[in-house]
Design a protein around this nucleic acid. Structure first.
Lengths: 204, 204
DNA sequence: CGCGGCGTTGACGATGGTCAATTTTCGTGG
DNA sequence: CCACGAAAATTGACCATCGTCAACGCCGCG
């Protein structure tokens, strides 16, 4: 699938080690990023350290696309991650010359908005079990192999995405496991098989 | 302040009575709206009736601007409300002819995104008192007369915006009142004076 | 007046958070 | 390969915040 961003000339790649910051909230937005390999979390912090993760970005995803001058989240590598870099300036030039690029920019922003709006409903009104079920379904849809997920992020990351604590996430996963809708693969607790997607959707 | 949307020819106005639906979620988006007078709430529902209000739109605000074909929220008049209507089609025509309109579209979408992203942090990580304080500060900033607000929406509406119940909203307002940061004016409980904006911000 | 809607307040309960112990996994170095 | 220590995940006990349910008050309106 090609898109407007692909039309922009772009040569640089960069690799960030696990936990390294890619950019900070309120920093000037010099680049737009696309994940080549790995995973990125974008988040906001309160002064006392409470964290809200806005999104996880996996291979192929674009992040750091701002229309203002500064980034509105901090971005960090969840695991060792490679990103393609696109200069903001060159993107703006391309958008001015080519309406397709511009349209694509608007469309990507809108898709982003849509996803965030759905997350509002989750954070404002869903129970812990519903949140975790929705998260697993989301990850399942985004992963290559349906029914089998390999989560790059920790329980704490998931918790901060879902507005919960890691203990509550853990308990919810355990409940789903006991209910027979999913199971762990191998010895990690980050590799999951979903036995019954219907049933999982029933919890959401 | 003029903007791209003002360049679009637009003649029709319409008035909705309190509680009347302006459009429903997933309906085709035929129009974009601007509030002339009154207030509008946009929300999503879960199947069991739980409601999450995404935003309140006051005089001057634009809502219903979608880039897909359908509305992503239901919109309803909070009080008797007059809106200006802009045909989606005519907006698209204008955007194709005039880059300024197009840029404005993107900028409005981004501002919308920014606001929703901040609401994520509120819903995911703030306490009830922090939420109510943030809400009152938001309304204060958006209202004409600083320090004095006249809320068009009920406690239940506020609750569904903040991811709380109306009882918790009521209790939080009471606590702020007892703490001396605000007070009611007259006999209604929707007219509020903020005595100490600094102190209120301290709760957020 | 009395009725209805809205808001407040109180008592109680449940969901999810906190704190802590235990288990499992993983990375490092012999 | 195994051993050790650190980090992550799970689990349990207890607690706090917020939700539920209900009573009451206030105001507006017939």
């Amino acid at each position: 699938m090609t898109s407007g961003l692909d039309l922009v000339v772009n040569l640089s790649e960069f690799t960030y080690k696990q936990r390294k910051e890619i950019y900070g909230e309120k920093e000037p937005a010099a680049y737009v990023y696309q994940v080549t390999k790995g995973a990125v979390r974008t988040y906001k912090l309160l002064s006392d350290g409470r964290r809200q993760i806005g999104a996880f970005h996996l291979a192929g995803d674009i992040f750091g696309l701002e229309n203002g001058e500064t980034h509105r989240f901090t971005a960090e590598a969840v695991v060792d991650t490679t990103v393609r870099l696109i200069r903001r300036e060159s993107l703006e030039n391309a958008a001015n010359k080519d309406a397709v690029v511009f349209l694509d920019l608007l469309s990507k922003t809108t898709r982003n908005l849509e996803q965030v709006e759905n997350h509002l409903l989750l954070l404002g009104r869903k129970t812990s079990l519903e949140r975790v079920a929705a998260f697993l379904l989301e990850m399942d849809q985004r992963s290559a192999a349906a029914g089998v997920l390999s989560l790059p992020m920790s329980r704490r990351d998931i918790a901060d995405y879902l507005g919960l604590t890691m203990e509550t996430v853990s308990r919810s996963v355990s409940r789903l496991r006991q209910a027979g809708v999913l199971d762990f693969i191998g010895n990690t607790h980050r590799e999951i098989v979903i036995h019954d997607r219907r049933q999982l959707a029933g919890f959401d």
